[in-house]
């Protein structure tokens, strides 16, 4: 049984959805934040990939591309002691109120 991210050759009849969406502001911020942290050598691509692969199979399928990046980034920042889950929880609630 393949790990969920290991998709090469996994039987699929699904047609390829060729529609494209403009990246949303937060998606572009995610890509940029990851680049900034990479430049500072606080995280690297291999860690980011490892964090994405650690997402449970159901979550992996459910989340969008940058949502997986966000989840992995959180794993890494907490693991490295740069942020805590509690402070991200708290601030995310504030961010939610600010933008809803």
């Amino acid at each position: 049984m393949n790990a969920v991210h290991d998709m090469g050759g996994v039987p699929s009849e699904d047609p390829i959805d060729r529609s494209e969406h403009q990246l949303m502001e937060w998606e572009r911020r995610t890509g940029a934040l990851v680049d900034v942290l990479r430049e500072k050598q606080l995280i690297n691509t291999d860690e980011l990939r490892r964090g994405i692969e650690a997402i449970s199979p159901d979550e992996y399928r459910r989340l969008g591309y940058y949502e997986r990046w966000s989840a992995s980034l959180e794993t890494l920042l907490v693991e490295k002691g740069l942020l805590t889950t509690e402070e991200i929880d708290k601030r995310a609630a504030v961010v939610g109120q600010r933008w809803v």
Partner: peptide, 24 residues
């Protein structure tokens, strides 16, 4: 955050991302 207003339905991963950036 210019342009964020268009993302009114920020999901939890997006909110957490914004939170992480602010905290950093």
């Amino acid at each position: 955050h210019p342009g964020l207003a268009e993302d009114l339905s920020l999901g939890e991963p997006a909110r957490r991302l914004m939170a992480m950036e602010e905290l950093l």
